[in-house]
Design a protein around this nucleic acid. Structure first.
Length: 597
RNA sequence: GGGGUCGUAGUUCAGUUGGUUAGAACGCCGGCCUGUCACGCCGGAGGUCGCGAGUUCGAGUCUCGUCGACCCCGCCA
């Protein structure tokens, strides 16, 4: 039977009571976490987002009967007196374990069906079940922690940027499809048949227009939408701290962001060191095989082409002669590895696309290795020296097209470090990756495309050869990387309309198209645009790292599955044909609707 | 778009070469218990083996299709 809350008001939360409250009459409201029925003595652990408190029903037969009827996840009101537990009944595992509330009255405010999984147990439910009953999953302490952390981080971000003179301005969610980039989510217009809004991939153009509008320092914690396939750290809608600054240089942006990261990490009680390390894109790609190196471990990729250019080992010699490279990584203390372990590395390298992987070591001064006969001891000794390998180390070598070799060794490096337990979550390796190319060649479309986005300023020294050597131009773009994860990216923008038109021309975005798609922006640029630049920080990924959570889903209250479904709400879903009529839309594909689950 | 792993009780899983009545743990229901806190003890209920075809005397098990979850590649300015 369900009873009324009536005039009962909560006096304390379930995490609040301590020995100092003994003797106090309290009213607690929460969920029955666990019920322990000992006959004429019943314990109920009452839970809210602040903690657990033990309720005790005894002596009063009617009250004990009422407590016996309570089931998991019932919502109850508890009225009683705080009492100190006997010394042998104290629970040191609970913050409230020194006391209990001896019930005078117990009201069941809401009954609950038996939950599909136990809230009291951590994990032990499939993603599918958790997502379908997200409101139950979110009741679990771990998820509550994540929600709280997220709240505190966004609060710290707002405080910090406010103190720095930034203004939070909201930009439209119903906006216009932006050029290039990811696939847009589209929203049909009812009023304008056949026309569509797009949900923002980022508020890029709007924040630049805010600079033109004189906002000077803009920040927004904002949802962004990209209709691309999902990953463990990627959701179709995600949150950014979007930042734009007038009269900005790279140094100014870096300083502001480093300050923001300092405040964010203070939320979890950590002091970080700034300024952050910087590395060129070229170095990152060559020495770590990725544009987001995880610098918690060393093991950079060494180029050993010179050592093998004239060697007797024809595979490596020929690779160098035909424009390839011989590169390697030094595995610290790898010399003791068993043959089985090394064979596994070779297999792994092949699985990553390598034609082979050679290894060299000299544990007791004697050179050993898979290519000892072919390359000779002197050459291998030179290779060990050039790579900086000492006797306890193992040198792994591969040859081929330089970028491909580095990519493979980069993946091998991460895998080795992970297996060795050297990627510790408590270590923090921040890195600015800079000097990105301005353009990439799109072989399929046979044209240049922006590596960052088309509003990114080229470096001044590249302006003269933009048209003659677009592939060699560098962008004033930067990414912020933390522990191998890209947590931010931005650039100094183009503020000169003439240069912006040149870039569009190079991207083969015709005048007509440019005018149609963002003519308003080109026009705005003509009215006195301050030099400006900014960045967007990935809130979800930052929270992931702070919380030590791996799937990004676990730091988002209502995430989507890898098939971009909301299993709780059941979206997307077919709509009433009348809605489609109003929107002037006729569908071609037949919607399957939610699966037959 | 491609590749991989998985789908069996409310939940998490086991299930041998295709063979009688599909098991375990937790949860759930009932009983006993005044100091439990993952309470304990006794008893019980609970299954469209994701869905649909096919092979077979016989399918949880094999084949094909389909739906869904997860991970990776492509994609993600």
């Amino acid at each position: 039977m369900v009873e009324r809350l009536g005039t009962l008001a909560r006096t304390h939360t379930c995490g609040a009571l301590t020995a100092g409250d003994v003797g106090t009459e309290v009213v607690l409201l929460g969920w029955a976490h666990r019920v322990r029925d000992l006959g004429s003595l019943v314990f109920i652990d009452l839970r809210d987002r602040y903690g657990l408190t033990q309720l005790t029903a005894r002596d009063d037969a009617a009250l004990v009967e009422a407590a016996k009827r309570v089931r998991s996840e019932f919502v109850v009101a508890a009225v009683g007196r705080v009492e100190r537990r006997a010394a042998d009944a104290v629970n040191p595992k609970m913050p409230t374990g020194e006391v209990e509330v001896v019930l005078r009255e117990l009201r069941v405010l809401a009954e609950a069906k038996t939950p599909p999984f136990q809230i009291a147990e951590d994990a032990a439910a499939s993603d599918e079940t958790r997502l379908r009953y997200r409101y139950l999953d979110l009741r679990r302490p771990r998820m509550q922690q994540n929600l709280l952390l997220r709240h505190r981080v966004t609060l710290a971000v707002r405080r910090y940027f406010d103190a720095q003179g930034f203004l939070e301005v909201e930009t439209p969610v119903l906006t216009k499809s932006t050029p290039e980039g990811a696939r847009d989510y589209l929203v049909p217009s009812r009023v304008h048949p056949g026309q569509f809004y797009a949900l923002p991939q980022s508020p890029q153009i709007f924040k630049q227009i805010l600079m033109i509008a004189g906002v000077d320092r803009y920040v927004q914690i904002v949802k962004c939408f990209r209709d691309e396939d999902l990953r463990i750290d990627r959701q179709p809608e995600f949150t950014q701290v979007d930042v734009e600054i007038s009269f900005a240089t790279e140094e100014l942006v870096f300083g502001v962001v480093e300050g923001a990261m300092r405040e964010i990490f203070r939320v979890v009680g950590r002091e970080i060191e700034a300024p952050f390390r910087r590395m060129s894109y070229q170095e990152a790609m060559a020495r770590y095989g990725t544009d987001k190196p995880d610098l918690r471990v060393g093991m950079p990729i060494e180029d050993l082409s010179a050592v093998f250019a004239d060697s007797t080992f024809d595979v490596f010699r020929d690779a160098v002669a035909s424009g390839g490279a011989v590169r390697g990584i030094v595995v610290p203390d790898g010399a003791r590895s068993s043959r089985r372990v090394i064979d596994e590395l070779v297999e792994q390298a092949k699985a990553l696309g390598a034609s082979g992987l050679a290894w060299v070591r000299a544990p007791d001064g004697t050179v050993q290795g898979s290519i000892l006969k072919a390359a000779g001891e002197a050459t291998l000794r030179a290779a060990l020296d050039a790579a900086g390998a000492t006797s306890p180390d193992l040198l792994l070598l591969a040859a081929g097209e330089p970028a491909a070799v580095s990519r493979m060794l980069g993946q091998l490096r991460l895998s080795i470090a992970r297996k060795a337990g050297r990627l510790k979550p408590e270590d923090l390796a921040f890195l600015w990756v800079v000097d990105f190319p301005l353009f990439e060649w799109d072989g399929a479309e046979r044209r240049w495309v922006s590596m960052h986005h088309p509003f990114t300023s080229p470096r001044e020294e590249d302006l003269g050869r933009l048209e003659s050597a677009p592939g060699e131009a560098h962008a004033r773009a930067y990414d912020l990387v933390l522990n191998g994860s890209e947590i931010g990216g931005g650039s100094i923008r183009i503020h000169d309309p003439e240069l912006q038109r040149t870039i569009f021309r190079l991207l083969r975005i015709g005048d007509e198209e440019a005018k149609e798609r963002f003519g308003f922006f080109l026009e705005a640029l003509e009215y006195g645009t301050p030099p400006h630049g900014g960045i967007a920080l990935g809130v979800d990924r930052i929270i992931m790292i702070l919380a030590g959570e791996v799937p990004i889903r676990d730091v988002i209250a209502f995430p989507k599955t890898t098939a971009a479904l909301d299993l709780m709400a059941g979206s997307p879903s077919p709509v009433d044909p009348r809605q489609l009529d109003e929107l002037h839309i006729r569908t071609v594909a037949k919607a399957d609707g939610p699966g037959d689950r």
